[in-house]
C-alpha cells in the first residue's frame, strides 16, 4: 500500500502507545482536581447560587470547541500545503470531538441560561455563533462520510475547513452586529480581568483537564483511523489480487 506502510504512521502508532497511558493518567488527575475544586472549593455566586458551577463545564467546553477547529484548520493546511499523510487523519478525528464539545457547550449554556433568562434558548450572540459552529462541524463530518475515498474526502474537507476558518471571524463579527441590532447586550460577562481567583483557579484546572481529554480522545481516534485505513487498504489489495493484474507495468518494444 502507498503511504500507510511507511514510517510515519507506524512511528506515530508507536508514539501513541507510549504517550497515551501517561496522558490518560494526567487527564484523570486533572479532572479529579478540577471537579473537586469546582464543586467544593469555588464559592457560590451571590445571585445564582450553585448554578454558577455549570460554568466550570461550559467555559472549557466552549473553549475546546474553538481549539478543535483551530487544530482542524492547521491540519487542513498540513493536508493541502505540506501533504503530510497524518494531517487529514488528524483533521478527520478532531471533527467529531469538536462537535461533541460544541454540543456540550450549547447544552450547558442553555441549562445555565434557564434560571437566568427564564428560557432555555435566547438568540444571544455567543450561543448563536456556537450553534453555527456546530452546524459547520456536522457539515464537515457529513462530507467525510459521503465520500468513499478517504484521501479525496480529506482534501475536500480540508478546503472547506480552511474556508470555514476564514469565515468564522466574519460570522462572529456579523452575529455580534446582528445581536446588538436586535437586542442590546444584557448577558453577564465572564471574561475580563476582574474575575476572582477563587473562580479563576478551578476554571483553569478544568480547562487543562478538558484540553488533556481532547488530546487523549484525539490520539485514540487517530490510532483507530489509521488502523481502519490499513484494513481498507488490505481489503482493496485482497480484491485486486483476485482479478488478473494491477500491480505493475512492463514495456516491450514492437515493430
Amino acid at each position: 500500500m502507498a503511504i500507510w506502510d511507511y514510517a510515519n504512521p507506524t512511528r506515530f502508532l508507536r508514539l501513541v502507545q507510549i504517550v497515551l497511558p501517561w496522558l490518560t493518567g494526567l487527564c484523570v488527575l486533572a479532572f479529579a482536581a478540577g471537579l473537586y475544586m469546582s464543586f467544593f472549593v469555588a464559592p457560590d455566586d451571590y445571585q445564582q447560587g450553585d448554578t454558577v458551577r455549570i460554568m466550570y463545564i461550559h467555559v472549557p467546553a466552549a473553549w475546546l470547541s474553538m481549539m478543535c477547529y483551530s487544530i482542524m484548520a492547521v491540519s487542513s493546511l498540513g493536508t493541502l500545503v505540506w501533504k503530510h499523510p497524518l494531517a487529514d487523519v488528524s483533521a478527520k478525528c478532531a471533527a467529531p470531538i469538536g462537535a461533541a464539545f460544541t454540543f456540550m457547550a450549547l447544552v450547558t449554556g442553555s441549562l445555565w441560561g434557564k434560571p437566568m433568562w427564564g428560557t432555555y434558548w435566547v438568540w444571544d450572540a455567543r450561543l448563536t455563533s456556537v450553534l453555527v459552529l456546530l452546524i459547520m462541524y456536522l457539515g464537515l463530518m457529513t462530507l467525510w462520510r459521503t465520500m468513499e475515498d478517504p484521501i479525496k474526502a480529506g482534501k475536500a474537507a480540508a478546503i472547506l475547513t480552511l474556508v470555514g476558518a476564514l469565515n468564522l471571524p466574519v460570522i462572529k463579527f456579523s452575529v455580534d452586529w446582528w445581536n446588538t441590532l436586535h437586542q442590546p447586550a444584557s448577558v453577564i460577562r465572564m471574561d475580563g480581568p476582574t474575575i476572582h481567583p477563587d473562580i479563576l483557579w478551578p476554571l483553569l484546572v478544568m480547562a487543562v483537564a478538558f484540553t488533556l481529554l481532547f488530546f487523549v480522545l484525539h490520539l485514540m481516534a487517530m490510532r483507530n483511523e489509521i488502523l481502519r485505513r490499513r484494513v481498507r487498504a488490505m481489503r482493496l489489495r485482497a480484491a485486486s489480487a483476485a482479478q488478473p493484474g494491477t500491480a505493475a507495468a512492463t514495456a516491450q518494444p514492437a515493430e
Binding site: 453555527v132 457539515g139 462530507l143 459521503t146 469565515n167 460570522i171 456579523s174
Partner: peptide, 27 residues
C-alpha cells in the same frame, strides 16, 4: 465544487454553504 462528484449532493451543498452565507444574509 466540493460535492461535484456526489450523485445527490444538493442537500449536502446547502448544509455546507448556509453557515458560510450567514454574514451575507445578516448584512
Amino acid at each position: 465544487a466540493l460535492t461535484v462528484s456526489l450523485r445527490r449532493g444538493g442537500l449536502l451543498l446547502a448544509v455546507l454553504v448556509i453557515p458560510l452565507a450567514i454574514p451575507v444574509l445578516i448584512f
